[in-house]
Design a protein around this nucleic acid. Structure first.
Length: 617
RNA sequence: GCGGUGGUAGUUAAGUUGGUUAUAACGCCGGCCUGUCACGCCGGAGGCCGCGGGUUCGAGUCCCGUCCGCCGCGCCA
């Protein structure tokens, strides 16, 4: 018996022909006379009819015995589904093959099946641990099959696009030298060198730069990366990047190349023309500083408003505006402890239009939410009447009229609106307000809980600072080979916090789907960067010596980007978890419920790699 | 590391102030049924209530510990 069609192939044009289908029993409906079996493969489902008047007795007996998930081969005649006696059609418009059915003539049972722990259907609700334990069954579900088929197309189009644009696909090592700083590495003990370890590559970053030095000019790779950090709904310990690096280009050239890729993927894989939103083929650019000010993070979801308003200057001008909690902060700006251009503390507000609909209980719920984010509370005020009075607000009794009116004006809040405030540590306020904005966006149904709702908002976030605060000093906010803006180079020594750099993130509907930079290839500037973060020449040499050496042998100007394939697939599949686009994902505690990895190993295995383990208790 | 939430039949869930034999739906098994397509009807089997301790005459329910799933914070250059 040889298969002639997939289970999703038959159409009314095949009527009166013969077909042989192989697949799994999706469903069996026994009517005492007729038996219907829905046969499923990765391509679809076809209804097979066992009719005592048209099906040989031997095949009919097989249908009586068959059960869910048995693997069958069925030869039969393709027939129109016809009509009922009253003339209504028996065709099933919900099925791609619903115009036809297969009248079984011969059945081969390739395999029987245990009753699966859950049904192989999209609509069945099963907890994720069970799904992961029986992942090979979960993966039979049409939804997951669609996701992985789509992901395969993303891979294919990505390769095709880069080959069309003269890129070379080059593989790089997974077993690499441990590099301190950044993400935690997985360690792999060396058998040949006692006490020595490889690290699993957290990305091919340094290798792709060396490929540029080697003159390969255009490199890409769809590559697995490993990071031993705690997991999230969009993070796995091993994940896939589209890794890209180009020589002799500037930021605009790189953007153009990646924009072309995203346009192509959406067109070819999803059938969506992004030109309807981005007619000139480019994505908008938003300065990091503006993104932080308006949205509180560097990956804003701009499908909706609820923008933040920075009130720090007002707080300072009004010396706290009568609100005791704001006074220490105002004082520190006044006496010069805090710089206005690099504030350590800020005050932000967000206006909920017509927020009077929020009850005390609703707002307490919001406060509970932000407290979970590390906030100390949620100051709020409902604006009422033509004079903009604040009501239902703990601030109302303290606030001066001048400050209240100034805040109303700055935020644009008017009668019926609700203002929410956060103040304190800059990073904390941004983070809390950014999360609160998303939370409210979903609560107010400005964006869906998950998914695009048919709206793809793409942008570049550009020009972030090169350094971030750390323990009173400065640390590299990105990798240390990020090129500062030329006009900022002298600030490296005088005012590192003000140095901006050629780093960029690609953002889609509030998810960072890619990030990269133009690299630093001038050894003099590189030294100044190391110096600013307190890294000595020796330390730099120890950590990155091989790349620093490489850069001295004629490095071309170069830059690149890494794009998160899992996140793109997740967003494109309109699913809320990265696990739905990965065939064999791990749990949030990085367990594999299917194989039980990680496991203990025997003393002999440990001895071979020269390790002793310590009982954590 | 921290916070939240959950773990009861194969699966998904309900289970009241602690109180008789722990429910339901789907699935499974058997019977009936010739047009269903998440078929329908009748019947049946199926339980370490995550695990370990404690309180109590009595624990699915209360307390302590622990393991696991999920969500978030920290972390992720």
């Amino acid at each position: 018996m040889k298969r002639t069609h997939s289970c999703g192939a038959l159409r009314d044009t095949d009527i009166n022909g013969e077909a042989i289908l192989f697949g799994w029993v999706q469903n069996r409906r026994d009517h005492g006379g007729c038996i219907f079996i829905d046969l499923r493969d990765r391509d679809g489902v076809t209804q097979v009819v066992f009719d005592p008047e048209r099906t040989p007795a031997e095949a009919f007996k097989q249908a009586e015995r068959a059960r869910s998930e048995w693997v069958l081969g069925i030869r039969g005649n393709v027939k129109d589904r016809g009509t009922k006696d009253d003339g209504t059609s028996l065709r099933n418009p919900r099925l791609a093959t619903g115009d036809v059915e297969l009248i079984a003539q011969e059945v081969t049972v390739f395999n029987k099946a245990e009753t699966p722990p859950f049904e192989i259907e999209d609509h069945i609700k099963t907890n994720e641990d069970k799904r992961l334990e029986y992942r090979y069954l979960d993966l039979r579900r049409p939804k997951l099959q669609r996701n992985l088929i789509m992901r395969s197309k993303l891979n294919h189009e990505t390769r095709s696009y880069f080959h069309d644009n003269a890129f070379l696909e080059v593989e790089t090592p997974f077993l690499v030298k441990y590099t301190p700083g950044g993400a935690r590495n997985f360690l792999v003990p060396s058998r040949l060198y006692p006490s020595h370890f490889y690290a699993l590559a957290e990305s091919p970053q340094l290798y792709k730069q060396m490929l540029m030095v080697a003159g390969y000019e255009r490199y890409f790779q769809i590559v697995r990366c490993f990071r031993d950090e705690d997991l999230r709904i969009d993070r796995q310990p091993e994940f896939t990047q589209i890794d890209v690096e180009m020589s002799f280009i500037n930021q605009d050239d790189l953007f153009k190349m990646i924009e072309g890729l995203v346009f192509r993927l959406w067109k070819e894989v999803l059938g969506i023309d992004l030109k309807q939103w981005y007619p000139d083929g480019t994505f908008p650019r938003l300065k990091f500083e503006d993104s932080m000010r308006r949205f509180g993070n560097d990956k804003p979801d701009m499908r909706f408003g609820l923008e933040h308003v920075d009130l720090t200057e007002l707080v300072v001008a009004h010396k706290g505006g009568g609100i005791g909690m704001l006074e220490p902060m105002a004082q520190k700006f006044a006496d010069g402890t805090y710089r206005k251009d690099l504030p350590e503390e800020i005050c932000k507000a967000m206006v909920v239009p017509n927020g009077h609909g929020f009850s005390r209980k609703d707002i307490d719920g919001l406060e509970k939410y932000v407290n979970g984010m590390g906030a100390k509370g949620l100051a709020r005020a409902k604006v009422e009447g033509d004079d903009g009075a604040w009501v239902q607000s703990p601030l109302a009794k303290m606030v001066t009229d001048e400050f209240r009116l100034a805040v109303n004006e700055a935020t644009g809040a008017k009668d019926g609106d609700l203002i929410l405030f956060q103040f304190g540590n800059e990073a904390r306020v941004h983070a809390v307000m950014a999360n609160l904005r998303i939370h409210l966006g979903k609560l107010l149904k400005l964006i869906p809980e998950s998914g695009s709702a048919g709206h793809w908002n793409l942008l570049w976030v550009v020009d972030p600072p090169l350094f971030e605060r750390e323990d009173g000093g400065w640390a590299a906010a990105h990798h240390v080979f990020t090129r500062p803006h030329d006009e900022c180079v002298e600030l490296l020594e005088t005012d590192p916090g003000k140095v901006l750099c050629h780093r960029y993130d690609l953002v889609l509907n509030g998810f960072e789907i890619g990030g990269g930079s133009i690299r630093l290839h001038d050894p003099e500037v590189q030294k100044k960067v190391f110096s600013a973060i307190g890294l000595s020449d020796e330390e730099a040499q120890e950590k990155f010596g091989f790349l620093l050496d490489a850069l001295t042998y004629g490095a071309p100007p170069h830059g690149g980007i890494a794009i998160g394939m899992d996140r793109i697939a997740m967003l494109a599949a309109e699913t809320e978890s990265i696990r739905d686009v990965i065939a064999f994902p791990k749990t949030q505690r990085a367990n594999c419920l299917l194989t039980q990895a990680p496991t203990l190993v025997t003393p002999e295995q440990l001895l071979e790699v020269h390790l002793k383990t310590i009982d954590p208790s």
